[in-house]
């Protein structure tokens, strides 16, 4: 792009008035703004701080937190091990081993299911691409944000753990575009359970 390119827009800096150029009136105006905010917090209740452990932050419905693996009506994992999520994953944090579904009463209508489904939550960047990619709405990101663990191994979530996230959140967050969680649950409990 050269200097005469038609798409280039020439900008002129705005003309400053005398008051602007003296700084002082503008500084005072600025001080007034911060003073208003300080007064709002000290004398009013305009503070937006959430007193975290006592009060829980309620994330927006499309918040992308810990993953869960959804179950269908018969309690089977919905995932069909198509590996589209691990294909879409930019962080390569999803590892799936697919296998042929057993010829039992329960699994008769299913062809393939994940023998192992592992998400490395430490490597995950919570972009939500897996959720977008999933053709059967099996993987979803929940509103759980307090994801902690005491070791790297604890943060590698296997199928059991991901299914237990579903059990933990299914009431607060119904599958697919449910209402926002009324009472967020803590995923710290989840990790502690498995210590």
């Amino acid at each position: 792009m050269n200097a005469n390119h038609p798409d280039l827009k020439r900008m002129t800096p705005p003309k400053l008035s005398l008051g602007d150029r003296l700084y002082v009136p503008q500084v005072i105006a600025g001080l007034a703004v911060t003073a208003r905010h300080m007064a709002g917090v000290v004398f009013g209740d305009s503070a937006i701080t959430v007193q975290y452990p006592e009060d829980q932050h309620i994330p927006s419905p499309n918040y992308r937190g810990v993953h869960r693996l959804n179950k269908d009506e018969s309690g089977r994992v919905k995932c069909v091990a198509c590996m589209l999520c691990s294909t879409a994953c930019p962080a390569h944090c999803i590892d799936i081993v697919g296998t042929t579904a057993p010829e039992t009463e329960l699994w008769g209508d299913r062809e393939k299911y994940p023998a192992s489904f592992v998400i490395d939550e430490l490597r995950c960047i919570f972009c939500g691409m897996c959720e977008e990619a999933c053709p059967v709405e099996a993987i979803e990101l929940t509103g759980l944000y307090d994801l902690t663990g005491l070791s790297r191994e604890q943060m590698i979530f296997d199928k059991t753990k991901l299914l237990s996230v579903f059990d933990l959140t299914k009431d607060a967050e119904p599958m697919r575009y449910g209402s926002p969680p009324s009472r967020p649950t803590s995923s710290t409990e989840l990790v502690r359970d498995s210590i």
Binding site: V80, A81, C82, L84, E111, K112, P135, V136
Partner: peptide
């Protein structure tokens, strides 16, 4: 429509 479980996909 079972491309997700079909090996040919």
């Amino acid at each position: 429509l079972d491309c997700p479980v079909c090996d040919q996909a």
